[in-house]
């Protein structure tokens, strides 16, 4: 083992901490602005002289119905994570453990759709949704998110599944386990970190979406990412309420990430080796 010089260690530490703090400053500002009265932060939240703290902004935001937006977000992002994972887990298993005609072509067809911009498909989807009565319904937008998640989730999960040694499957087959059993008892438990990391990323993607939300839903059904715009007014924004709504909107994906972070890192690294 080579000894690392003290100077190098200190420099690395300082720079790493500085970058971390630099990246956090904007979020720190967001929190500060949300818990202090507007008159105090108007000239800058970084001035800490005579700081007062209040939760008034949060109460006001919830009074204006923002809880509903958060709930919409949880429903949409939640189902838009579970549904594509069920579908793409199955598909990835199909692509790794079974052989059938035109397999490679089907796989490429599925993954290729990734380059299609959202703007290109929005009008057809809107027409389809109007005709089917899915417009302004949450399950409509959940379906769209799920469909757009499939290419990369299948790609990612297939990579991970392929890294699982074939021997496991063979051994299970000898023990009399069928395809269903192999999937649920062998593949899924091993691939759990990968599935969790896909889930985290997809949840954050769906949570952040603005474009599909404002085009496929009416304002009363908007998720938080779109609903927050009701606190925006270009000339006289209410910064207190805006920032409080911002903190509330960040909270859920942040908690999801922090809670699952350990598995998340593990899952991502496994997927690349495959």
């Amino acid at each position: 083992m080579v000894k690392v010089s003290m100077k190098y260690k200190v420099t690395i530490n300082i720079v790493a901490w500085m970058i971390g703090i630099l990246l956090l400053i904007p979020l720190f500002g967001l929190v500060m602005a949300s818990i202090r009265p507007f008159s105090e932060v108007v000239s800058g939240w970084w001035i800490l002289k005579n700081a007062h703290f209040t939760l008034e902004n949060y109460i006001d935001v919830l009074d204006r119905g923002f809880a509903r937006n958060i709930l919409n977000s949880i429903i949409i992002a939640g189902f838009a994570t579970i549904l594509p994972l069920l579908v793409s887990g199955m598909a990835a298993y199909g692509f790794t453990s079974f052989s059938f005609p035109v397999k490679t072509m089907l796989f490429l067809t599925l993954v290729a759709i990734q380059v299609v911009p959202q703007q290109a498909v929005i009008i057809p989807l809107l027409k389809l949704f109007r005709d089917l009565g899915l417009y302004n319904h949450m399950y409509g937008i959940i379906l769209v998110h799920s469909a757009f998640a499939l290419p990369w989730t299948i790609f990612f999960l297939r990579n991970f599944f392929m890294s699982i040694p074939k021997d496991y499957e063979e051994a299970a087959k000898i023990d009399g386990l069928g395809s269903v059993g192999i999937y649920f008892r062998i593949i899924l438990p091993i691939a759990l970190p990968a599935i969790i990391s896909v889930a985290v990323v997809q949840f954050i993607f769906a949570w952040q979406d603005l474009f599909f939300a404002i085009t496929l839903l009416r304002p009363e059904n908007w998720p938080a990412s779109a609903g927050i715009t009701k606190f925006v007014s270009r000339y006289n924004p209410n910064w207190g309420q805006l920032t409080a709504a911002g903190v509330l909107t960040i909270l859920v994906p942040l908690l999801v990430y922090v809670a699952l972070q350990k598995y998340y890192m593990k899952g991502v690294s496994g997927g690349i080796k495959g």
């Binding site: 970058i19 971390g20 703090i21 990246l23 956090l24 904007p26 979020l27 967001l30 954050i204 949570w207 952040q208 603005l210 938080a224 990412s225 779109a226 927050i228 715009t229 911002g246 909107t249 960040i250 994906p253 942040l254 990430y257 922090v258 972070q261 890192m265």
Partner: peptide
């Protein structure tokens, strides 16, 4: 790991 990733969990609107 958390602070470097934190911005990515934040909605682009915010």
């Amino acid at each position: 790991k958390v602070s470097y990733f934190l911005p990515a969990t934040t909605s682009s609107v915010i």
